[in-house]
């Protein structure tokens, strides 16, 4: 057997064995493994992509949450401010009203007091006049005997009263 002459028997068996192995591996071997590994690769890539997206979404949600919180805080402060203003306004108004009312009451009271005072003075004056008249009557009754003197006195008194009134 020369080294470089292909041997028929070995060539024959090589053909048989290699073609059998090729057929078996073509059917059950390599495509199965290659497809599986490629599918796994696709699956892992997909999972990574999803994880990435989820992380991104989570970050977005956090950001959104913070934004919402910030907004809420701002709204709160605005509301608080408004409430305070309203409160102040109400209080101021109430004070004003109260003052007005009090003034009005005071004025009313003063007016009434004035009126009553005037009435009282009038009454007193009337009473004083009556008393004076009565006193005068009494005085006059006692001294009516002397006509001349009495006439003079009456005129004098009348004058005085007239001047007074």
């Amino acid at each position: 057997m020369s080294l470089i002459t292909p041997d028929f028997g070995l060539f024959f068996w090589m053909a048989v064995v290699f073609l059998c192995v090729l057929a078996i591996l073509w059917k059950f071997g390599f495509p199965v493994i290659v497809n599986m590994v490629n599918e796994r690769k696709a699956f892992i890539d997909g999972s990574l992509q999803k994880a990435h997206e989820a992380t991104e979404r989570l970050a977005n949600i956090q950001k959104e949450g913070e934004a919402l919180l910030q907004e809420a805080r701002e709204k709160q402060s605005v509301l608080l401010k408004e409430a305070k203003e309203t409160h102040d306004a109400i209080v101021a108004k109430a004070e004003g009203d109260a003052r007005e009312q009090a003034n009005k009451l005071l004025a009313d009271a003063k007016a009434q007091i004035e009126a009553e005072k005037a009435a009282a003075i009038r009454e007193i004056r009337t009473q004083v006049a009556e008393l004076s008249v009565q006193i005068a009557e009494k005085v006059v009754r006692q001294n009516l005997s002397d006509n001349t003197a009495q006439m003079q006195l009456i005129d004098k008194l009348l004058d005085e009263v007239s001047v007074e009134k």
């Binding site: 070995l10 192995v21 078996i24 591996l25 059950f28 390599f30």
Partner: peptide
């Protein structure tokens, strides 16, 4: 027409069997 199972044919068979095992088990 000589298709004897010579030494190298025998090794060829062993090689084929090992190859099949090494690929079909992972498959």
């Amino acid at each position: 027409f000589d298709i004897s199972i010579t030494k190298q044919v025998c090794i060829l068979f062993i090689d084929a069997i090992i190859l099949l095992l090494c690929i079909l088990i992972p498959a």
